[in-house]
Design a binder for these strands. Sequence first.
DNA 1: CACAGCCTTACTTTTACCTTACTTTTTTGC
DNA 2: GCAAAAAAGTAAGGTAAAAGTAAGGCTGTG
Lengths: 233, 233
Amino acid sequence: MDNTFLQNKKLLLVDDEPELLEMVTAILSDEGFGNIVTAVSVKEGISAVQNEKPDLAILDVMLPDGDGFSLMQQLRTFSDMPVIFLTAKDEAADRLSGLGLGADDYIAKPFLPQELLFRIYAVLRRCYKEDTPFINLDGCTIDFGRAEVHKAGKTIPLTAKEHIFLETLARSEGRIVTVDTLCEALWGDNPFGYENSLNAHVRRIREKIEADPSNPVSLITVKGLGYKLNTRK
Amino acid sequence: MDNTFLQNKKLLLVDDEPELLEMVTAILSDEGFGNIVTAVSVKEGISAVQNEKPDLAILDVMLPDGDGFSLMQQLRTFSDMPVIFLTAKDEAADRLSGLGLGADDYIAKPFLPQELLFRIYAVLRRCYKEDTPFINLDGCTIDFGRAEVHKAGKTIPLTAKEHIFLETLARSEGRIVTVDTLCEALWGDNPFGYENSLNAHVRRIREKIEADPSNPVSLITVKGLGYKLNTRK
DNA sequence: CACAGCCTTACTTTTACCTTACTTTTTTGC
DNA sequence: GCAAAAAAGTAAGGTAAAAGTAAGGCTGTG
């Protein structure tokens, strides 16, 4: 199983013991995670989530100014990021409060480095499996890492906008993505007046990924609703 | 947190101890899971996955004709369904083999029923949170995320108006929705003079979702009041 | 039997999207 | 910093699918 694409996810670690922070950070860096943020309190944790927007939070249950559970509850008011709890005491009551709140996993100290890593991978994999760097379409494959389309032996480069467009569609594999959502992904806060430009991009993308751009089989328009990307498993 | 939508997921339980199968099945049924399949060996497990296509597998590590790990490895050759291991001995080595293979979680016996449930929810939520909402009707299912009807193996696309119409009805499943409400959902602020057009849509929708459009069983008219959508299950 | 309310079907209109060529903007290489 | 190339955006005419319209036909009710 190739998990390397998960290593560029940003991890947030909240614990008040400096040695533990250091140890875990070391384990994670060794493994290849290059994007680790730490915090030592509930307060710091909250602002770290808001400012850094990590992809996964690993929270100690015991914190100086509260506990990991209340930190998580506060998080949940504005984010549904995955959360793993870390705790000194392996008590059933604690496990249940954490999992009951909707945590994704729970690890009791002391833990083996390998177990921590595996659990992190398991959670990340499930949460971000759509971020895989490759997808297969009917007559071609898209390599998001390289921003390339491979079709009939040829390699066709994708432009920036095309890349975002396809990524947005790929993230909700097969389901309809509205024009509004796409415009927002492409043009940000003020995504108005670009509908026509979107059309032009659709055409150009079809020329790259479809065998017959005028009769698309992968990038499908759903009149009045949006577009969808048919992936081939 | 509302997890009820996860309770119609199909669970596969593989264990060779009848009492444990029975106990876990009882826990799950009590909780509201209505779709539980069991198997007692690696061989049975494999064929259960192929025939029943469950959404989650809960595997005992010890099985008469092999172990849960090899069962999982065989599964992985044709499915990436989520897997939770269940084991008598809580040994680190076991945990690591399971998680290392890409299992989603690992529960040591004896476990608290609550913990089992929470971990099942955590895994299901993670894996199916983006599931498109869909509903089952008498002879077909409607996939709203894809705007498609699946009937007798065929996939029939829904148009924008049909989509809104069905969504409006589905939202108050089974109850009567007035013509006024429907018109407002379809034509917004000034929903007058469209009653006839609504009729036409009703007909077209029935052609898509009913076995016999002239004798509807799902999309029912309630004379003088409106329409209702009979859902199954 | 007459009427109301809905069904059915064929037909017309409309709208959302396609297509293409062209213009403007951004990026790249020298 | 400039010119060339690439990417992105704009505009206009075309088209087919979707929506709307209308007319005649059922069916149950008073």
